Amino acid sequence: MLKSMKVFGAALLLIAPTAGYAADLYEPPIIEAPEPLPPVIQPDPAPSFGGWYIRGDIDYHWSKLRGTEYITYGDAPGGLRGGTASFDTTDLKGAMSLGAGIGYQINKYLRADLTADYWFKSDFTGSTSGTCGGSPCVSTDTSAYSAWLLMANAYVDLGTYYGFTPYVGAGIGGAYIMWDDLTNSISGGSTTVHEGSSNWRFAYSLMAGTSYCLTENLNLDMGYRFTRVAGGRMFEYASGVAPGFDDGFNVHEARAGLRYQFGGNSNCAQPQVVSYDPPPFEPPVYK
């Protein structure tokens, strides 16, 4: 028995240093928690298009007459005989206008609207020359015109860059031109008043500009519009002269306005920031 215990003790003395040495050699690997992935910026999934909008605009416009003519009968004032004549000079002052409309965003690049604009009065000054009682004379003519412009418009949006969306467009419709009475004053002579005429005319427009995203629903719109208005009756008969006709207008407009889109404008949608959160890190357990 004593001998067996001695043998067992000797075995323990031999095993213990070996086990300690082995424990000193083995070190479990250090596993670090994974780094979180950086945020990923993605556009809104499946952006929706198609939505109604309303708009309001203000502008300043400059009108230029493309020509004038009026009918004369017999020995009209100024020495004009029967036939037609025209103003020697014409000038139209600039004026303000206000507009409103309703439209629909068809897709990312195409929209259309119906607009109504009121052009405030543009003052007209003209002159004619002739003979009065055998002597040369000159007349000064004054009037003004205002108008309603009703248009159906289509636009192509050319993409959005840092909130700015340039566009081009065209419109077709009609203008209701309202001329004030024309006052014809001959220097050193008589004054004649011709009743002004009002009538509908064909009109078309070409536009270019850019809109800026103020919010996802609200855009600031700035641009230029050129409008061509067909000719029509300008003033009525008085004292052997008229009716008178204008050959139409070329109108240049600098415009600014706001466009509110119901349901939001996909061109103005902010990108989504999507981040990946890894599952909680649990260190390995060694047994």
Rank of each mutant, 00 (worst) to 15 (best):
S190N: 11
G159W: 05
F226I: 06
T215Q: 01
G196Y: 00
G231S: 00
V229D: 09
F164D: 11
Y162Q: 14
S211P: 13
L182R: 07
V229H: 05
V229R: 06
R225C: 13
Y204K: 02
Y162T: 14
T215M: 14
R201C: 14
H194R: 05
D157R: 01
S211A: 15
G189N: 11
F235K: 11
G232E: 00
G232P: 05
M178A: 08
A170K: 07
Y176N: 04
G209R: 04
A175T: 07
W200H: 10
T160Q: 05
G174I: 15
Y204A: 05
F164M: 07
G173Y: 07
M222E: 11
D181A: 01
Y237A: 12
R225A: 05
V156M: 12
M234T: 06
N219W: 12
W200T: 03
E216I: 00
Y167D: 07
R228P: 13
G196W: 10
E216D: 09
N217I: 12
I186H: 01
E195N: 15
T160H: 06
L214Y: 04
M178N: 08
M222P: 12
F226S: 03
A230F: 07
L218V: 04
G196H: 06
N184D: 10
G188E: 05
L214R: 06
E236T: 05
Y212M: 10
G169Y: 07
Y224N: 13
Y212E: 09
S205Y: 00
G163Q: 06
S190L: 14
S187M: 02
G196V: 01
R233S: 15
Y237R: 00
G171V: 12
M178Q: 04
R201V: 15
V168Q: 10
R201N: 15
V193N: 01
F202T: 08
G232Q: 05
F164S: 02
